[in-house]
Simulated scan of single mutants.
Amino acid sequence: MQIVPRCFGCFIRQAESVCDVCGVTGRQRSLVLRSVCEVLSKAPLDVPPPVVSDDVYGCIRNELGIDDPYADLKHEYNEQALAHYPACRELIESSDQPLRTALQLAIVGNVVDFGCDTAFDLDASIGAVRELPLSDRLVDTLDAALRKASSLVYLTDNCGEIVFDRLALELIIDRYGPKTIDVVVKGGPWINDVTADDVASVGISSLPSVNIVEVSNGDEGTGMARHSSAFHDFIAGHEVCISKGQANWELLSEKSNIFFFFMAKCPEIASSCNAELGEPIAYLSK
């Protein structure tokens, strides 16, 4: 997906949100927004939105002198999600369709997103998880793919959500036992996206067969650029790819053989996926 006009207003709103979280007002807030506007004035129009977001968030961090503006909120939502872990694990273990239930929980976890202009209630979403629509055919297709696969790449998205990804990964390890699972995280702070420290804090790093792979947050030395051919080749080198979140969809929607799972929180993305705002998106790209 390439940038559309609506994206520019969203970038400004995201900058405002960071200022709100950090308590930035007055002249400093104006300076942050002016700098973001300068970045946007030079932004290419033929790239996916996350490519420009890298520059926008780098600009905000530099202006504020704060490396991780969402650090406290990320920790808070990881802890909140971990409190649900035992009950959610029991939900999966008692299910007659455990893969389906694990995927439903992983999708529900995607409501935790501080980069979108949508309110969310994690507790309510978990309570309604069994009602989340998910195609039996898609679940069966993923089940068949995992049964044959020796390698899986799992593209993470947000903190809080990552606890439900852990549940899905544990099920995959126990039920299918792929030899290699590469879990992709950001190499540095990027909104409330998952970093290596986050996956370690919720127990994913210590799971069998799991390797943590870092991709760039836009800063030099933080990993492969997510829109690079090197990253695309890396994904293609795995037999199964599970992709979480809107940003990964924006970057990879034109690539084939990727299982996408996320909630539609952007009107443009919802429209592209023939869905309503707030609906779950789950499909295998062709």
Rank of each mutant, 00 (worst) to 15 (best):
Q2R: 06
I3L: 04
C7L: 03
C10Q: 12
R13D: 05
C19R: 13
V21N: 05
V21W: 07
V21I: 13
T25M: 12
T25F: 13
T25I: 11
V32A: 08
L33F: 10
V36P: 10
S41C: 08
K42P: 09
K42C: 13
L45I: 11
D46H: 01
P50H: 07
V56S: 06
C59F: 06
R61A: 10
L64V: 00
P69Y: 07
Y70K: 11
Y70M: 12
L73N: 02
L82C: 04
H84C: 09
P86M: 12
P86R: 13
A87W: 10
I92G: 02
E93G: 05
Q97K: 11
T101S: 11
A102Y: 06
Q104H: 09
I107D: 03
G109F: 11
N110L: 10
V111M: 05
D113L: 12
D113R: 11
F114G: 01
G115L: 11
G115C: 09
C116D: 07
T118G: 07
D121R: 03
L122P: 02
G127E: 01
G127W: 02
A128C: 08
A128W: 04
R130H: 15
S135N: 14
S135E: 14
D136H: 03
V139R: 09
V139F: 11
D140K: 03
D143Q: 04
D143E: 06
A144M: 00
A144Y: 00
A145F: 06
A145W: 10
A145L: 05
A145P: 03
A145Q: 07
R147A: 15
S150I: 04
S151K: 15
L152Y: 14
V153D: 09
Y154E: 13
N158S: 10
C159S: 14
E161G: 06
D165F: 10
D165M: 07
D165I: 06
E170Q: 09
I173Y: 15
R175T: 14
Y176F: 15
P178A: 02
K179M: 14
V183C: 08
V185Y: 02
K186L: 04
K186D: 01
G187R: 00
G187W: 05
I191D: 10
I191Y: 07
N192T: 00
V194L: 07
A196S: 12
A196V: 10
A196W: 14
D197K: 12
D197H: 11
D197L: 14
D197M: 12
D198F: 06
D198I: 03
V199G: 05
S201R: 10
I204G: 14
I204V: 15
S205F: 05
S206M: 13
V210P: 12
V215I: 09
N217V: 04
E220W: 04
G221C: 13
G221F: 15
G223L: 03
M224L: 14
R226N: 02
H227F: 04
A230T: 01
D233E: 15
F234Y: 07
F234S: 01
G237V: 02
E239L: 01
E239M: 01
C241V: 06
S243N: 00
K244N: 07
W249K: 00
W249M: 02
L251Q: 00
L252N: 10
S253P: 07
N257K: 15
F259A: 05
F260D: 04
F261Y: 15
F262D: 00
F262Y: 06
C266F: 09
E268P: 00
E268Q: 02
A270W: 15
S271L: 07
S271N: 03
C273A: 15
G278N: 04
Y283M: 13
Y283H: 12
